[in-house]
């Protein structure tokens, strides 16, 4: 019986945790299959994620080895005295406070550049600041998107020649783009899981969000803030076009937006 807990803490629990975290990428439980995201910034975020996972993983396994050792030696001790009172060990306390403190400090500095690039407007890449493609309006329960007319800049107020879409955000691939995120009702969250982008949409605010799709293709866009009974309906997609085809596509969209049906005769 005494050994049972030793087996549990040293063998079952940490071994299970390591096995599961190794298997997870293959099972697609929210891990990227290849460890690669669909955007350059996402790669940095993945790197941070795995770094923290490895640090905490080593600490987790180490603590369990220590715990197992304590249980093992205690269960071998003769006599029926089970525990004794101790005031603690000052050196030990200092060690296990300072080391994690240093690790946290390291992480805090290490992630600063990535975080700033993602969230601080002044650290955005220059190209992202130049290339504001659309205004994304979240609402219960869809994404309404407003684009400026080809060759024009996005204005805060809707313009006569703006173009509109729903649940499909069209962007050029291979360069950073910015969207202006708004909500017309409650709080939503603009989530591009494969690009590691997540930003809440807050009533009354216009929040610039930049991202870059590495390759042309379709990427999921979902709402990551429980916004009401239809939250699950807010599935949409980002369509990244080859850069050389993007302008042509926007021109076609403009024609479709201002279709007067006459040519259809």
């Amino acid at each position: 019986m005494k050994r049972l807990w030793w087996i549990f803490f040293l063998m079952i629990w940490p071994v299970l945790a390591v096995i599961v975290s190794l298997l997870t990428p293959q099972l697609q439980w929210g891990f990227p299959l290849s460890g690669q995201s669909d955007s350059p910034l996402g790669g940095e975020i993945d790197h941070l994620f795995y770094l923290i996972l490895i640090i905490t993983g080593v600490v987790f396994v180490g603590t369990h080895i220590a715990l197992g050792y304590v249980i093992w030696t205690a269960s071998n001790r003769p006599g029926d005295r089970r525990a004794w009172y101790t005031h603690g060990n000052h050196k030990l306390e200092m060690t296990w406070t300072i080391i994690p403190g240093l690790i946290l400090l390291f992480l805090a500095f290490y992630q600063m550049r990535t975080w700033a690039e993602f969230r601080m407007e002044e650290a955005y890449p220059e190209a992202a600041k130049q290339n504001i493609v659309a205004e994304v309006n979240a609402r219960q329960f869809e994404w309404r998107i407003r684009y400026p007319a080809p060759g024009k800049e996005l204005q805060r107020k809707p313009q006569l020649d703006d173009m509109y879409g729903v649940n499909e955000l069209h962007v050029p691939a291979g360069s950073p783009v910015t969207i202006h995120l708004r909500t017309i009702d409650v709080q939503h969250s603009f989530f591009l899981p494969t690009m590691r982008i997540k930003q809440d949409a807050v009533p009354g605010l216009v929040i610039p969000v930049w991202f870059e799709a590495s390759e042309p293709g379709e990427y999921p866009l979902v709402c990551a803030e429980l916004c009401g009974w239809g939250h699950y309906k807010m599935g949409a997609k980002v369509v990244a076009h080859p850069p050389e085809e993007f302008d042509e596509f926007m021109k076609k969209m403009h024609q479709a937006q201002f279709n007067d049906g006459f040519a259809a005769e």
């Binding site: 219960q140 329960f141 869809e142 309404r144 729903v166 649940n167 499909e168 239809g230 309906k233 807010m234 599935g235 949409a236 997609k237």
Partner: peptide, 14 residues
């Protein structure tokens, strides 16, 4: 596909 803006009818484009 397009939904009805201004009402609760959402888009089912996906």
């Amino acid at each position: 596909r397009e939904g009805i803006p201004g009402t609760y009818m959402p888009s089912f484009k996906m």
